[in-house]
Design a protein around this nucleic acid. Structure first.
Lengths: 195, 195
DNA sequence: GTCTGATGTTACCAACGTCAACATTGTTGA
DNA sequence: TCAACAATGTTGACGTTGGTAACATCAGAC
């Protein structure tokens, strides 16, 4: 027989939410259904999260931590700097593809208001900073510090933009030849343009 | 006295939805509230849209048409090609900033499934193609056709990525000097890297 | 002038987020 | 040891939402 207290409800809810998020999509994610599948009353989640949005923010925050670890792991396993730079881009996109709903949640309405959930912003910005730190390693050319910085942000934007287009299903195949779009080629083309 | 038939419900609903979208955000947008403010019964909208998502798709579609027109207008008013390229990027971001909720809707869950709403994808891709056509004008260098194509997509991704970061409120100010991020400078830096 | 289809209304349903009041449990200090 | 307390879980309810079915009203075609 089940005990009155679940004992681990908060983490169980987060895990089940994460599962449902990827399986059913974000709009089919309801606190009630979550409680039901976990086998607890409909209002029990409110003992661990003030409201539904808090649950979302908790998921998003853990998502940023996962993403950060994934990026450093993938890029760290590369032999040289150039391949590490390509790899971090590929890794970022892979994470988004393998955790599409979570990724959209991370950059979705959850972090709409900066001051309401500062810890979310911290993890988000630290994640980008990690990416930028890696990119900056590449740029030891005799450029001005300001130019270097803009190139770095451009690289980050480039990866984010490719991620968006891929998630949106926009197939950037060649209009004439019909050749498939190859992300790693695109990243290498950008790298070759660096000073 | 009001007549039984509204006469222009579909467009009135779209206009009011657009207004509410920017004012209250997408999650506060309900068909019932819409019908109420328009002064019609709660189920009247279902005579013009099969469900709520159809209303969203209709808004998104018109949004893409607006965006396309805005881009050609802004870029067409530029004196030379280089400034036109910078201008199209600035215009894209401006549109997103001036119509944030609509922009997020356009690239949000509405166009999640490609085959369910092909006309949305058409307008979205035609919009990107227009942007790419302009960019391709710049690239008459003796590069391979494939490289040219990848540079074009990179430019599109760059703009999309900057848009995302700006909408997400990530301030890319310089970590040392604290100088504000300047989008047009970033775009010019990218342009200067082109072959 | 009647018939028909388009449009709007009323009544209803299931599901959701959330709150208040109550029940049960683990813990802690006398 | 045990009573008080805080944490956790349950029950019941309220208001709102998206959506369906049946009915009402109107405009235009024959």
């Amino acid at each position: 027989m089940a005990s009155y207290h679940h004992g681990n409800l908060r983490e169980t809810l987060l895990a089940e939410a994460r599962k449902q998020l990827e399986k059913e999509g974000i709009d089919k994610l309801s606190l009630r259904a979550l409680a039901r599948t976990v086998g607890v009353s409909q209002t029990a989640p409110y003992r661990h999260f003030p409201d539904k949005n808090a649950l979302m923010i908790a998921m998003a925050t853990s998502g940023f931590e996962e993403l950060r670890q994934y990026l450093v792991a993938r890029s760290g396993a590369s032999p040289d700097l150039d391949s590490a730079l390509v790899e971090v881009g590929l890794a970022y996109v892979d994470f988004a593809k393998n955790n599409t709903a979570l990724y959209k949640l991370m950059f979705g309405p959850a972090l709409a208001n900066k001051e309401s959930c500062p810890e979310l912003y911290e993890s988000a910005e630290s994640c980008i900073k990690a990416l930028q730190a890696l990119i900056q390693l590449k740029l030891s050319a005799p450029e001005s510090d300001e130019t270097l910085w803009y190139i770095t942000i451009n690289a980050a934007a480039l990866i984010k933009g490719h991620t968006s287009m891929i998630l949106e299903g926009i197939d950037n195949c060649h209009p004439d030849t019909g050749a498939d779009f190859d992300l790693s080629k695109a990243l290498k083309v950008f790298l070759s343009m660096l000073p």
